[in-house]
């Protein structure tokens, strides 16, 4: 049994870090912000942490905190211009942001060692740490969804015109969601760096951007469980089906297309909704309309 655990421990760690990233993506999508920038903030957090530890001998915890702060600051700065955009334009702008960060990490060799990446990062973030962080974040986000903030986000996401007609301050809430997502992604980046020994620019490129999106699309963007389910499924699928390892991207692509076309609310959210409806049907006999 323990052997089983040790074999899959690194997979588990991988799932946990990705779950954090998925939750960062979930937060923005829940509020109706079409941001694809989580990978960029993760890159900032990861590199900040890695550089501080390896080049400046900062204590790891402080370095991770710094990485989180960098992610938060960057998203705070971006939030202002981004709030004026909608839909597709937010997507493209955040995509450009990810590319800019990628360019910077690839070319600013004096700081980031370019394409070689940074090695020798101490493995500070163990499974227990990661699990702890994920649990805390999940609790936070579940709480967020239960009260006024979650309610407002849902209205904005579903129908912005209604939100505006009810007096909800859309830019304020969307800015907040974006900054929160930046913080979570920055933290995810810092934790990724300290659980992977080495990082390279391509770890945080288009591939990660798509993965973050895919996890939330797969699982669902209206509840935290969606992000978690998505992370578990997306990361473990290639492992469980070694046969498909080569075709991982094809599978990811097919999954993405099938889910968005046939199960647009994602696996977890659809399930939750179905269960709720089934419970209602057994509970009451609806009045005659």
């Amino acid at each position: 049994m323990m052997n089983f655990f040790y074999t899959y421990q690194s997979l588990f760690d991988h799932i946990l870090v990705n779950a954090l990233l998925a939750m960062s993506q979930y937060v923005v999508l829940r509020a109706g912000v079409f941001s694809l920038g989580s990978a960029g903030f993760a890159a900032l957090g990861a590199y900040c942490t890695a550089i501080l530890i390896t080049a400046q001998a900062w204590p790891p915890v402080a370095a991770i905190a710094a990485g989180t702060v960098l992610g938060t600051t960057a998203s705070a700065l971006l939030a202002l211009p981004l709030a004026r955009l909608r839909g597709v334009f937010q997507a493209v702008a955040t995509l450009a942001f990810v590319q800019i960060v990628l360019s910077a990490t690839q070319n600013w060799e004096s700081l980031t060692h370019g394409a070689l990446g940074i090695n020798g990062i101490p493995h500070v973030a163990g499974t227990a740490t990661l699990l702890g962080v994920v649990v805390v974040v999940v609790l936070l986000l579940v709480t967020m969804g239960r009260f006024g903030l979650g309610r407002a986000m849902d209205v904005i996401r579903e129908d912005e015109m209604v939100a505006v007609s009810l007096g909800i301050s859309v830019p304020y809430i969307q800015r907040f969601a974006f900054i929160l997502s930046g913080a979570l992604a920055g933290m995810a980046g810092g934790l990724h760096a300290t659980s992977s020994y080495a990082i390279t620019p391509n770890d945080y490129g288009f591939g990660l951007l798509v993965a973050a999106l895919a996890m939330v699309v797969l699982g669902g963007r209206t509840s935290v469980w969606g992000a978690l389910v998505g992370a578990v499924v997306l990361i473990s699928l290639p492992e469980l089906f070694r046969v498909f390892a080569d075709y991982r991207n094809v599978v990811q692509g097919i999954l993405l297309m099938t889910v968005i076309i046939y199960l647009p609310r994602g696996v977890a959210d659809t399930l939750i909704s179905m269960l709720r409806d089934r419970r209602l049907r057994h509970e009451v006999v609806p009045e005659k309309p």
Binding site: F34, G87, V88, A91, V210, L213, V217, Y247, R248, N249, V250, Q252, G253, I254, L255, L256, M257, I260, I261, P264
Partner: peptide, 26 residues
């Protein structure tokens, strides 16, 4: 399939990303 349903533009972009992955991998 998305047009038929009147799905939001978010879905179209996600779907095309998926298709892109497939074409790239092939």
């Amino acid at each position: 399939p998305l047009r038929r349903r009147g799905a939001p533009e978010f879905s179209a972009i996600v779907s095309s990303i998926g298709a892109d992955l497939i074409l790239l991998a092939l």
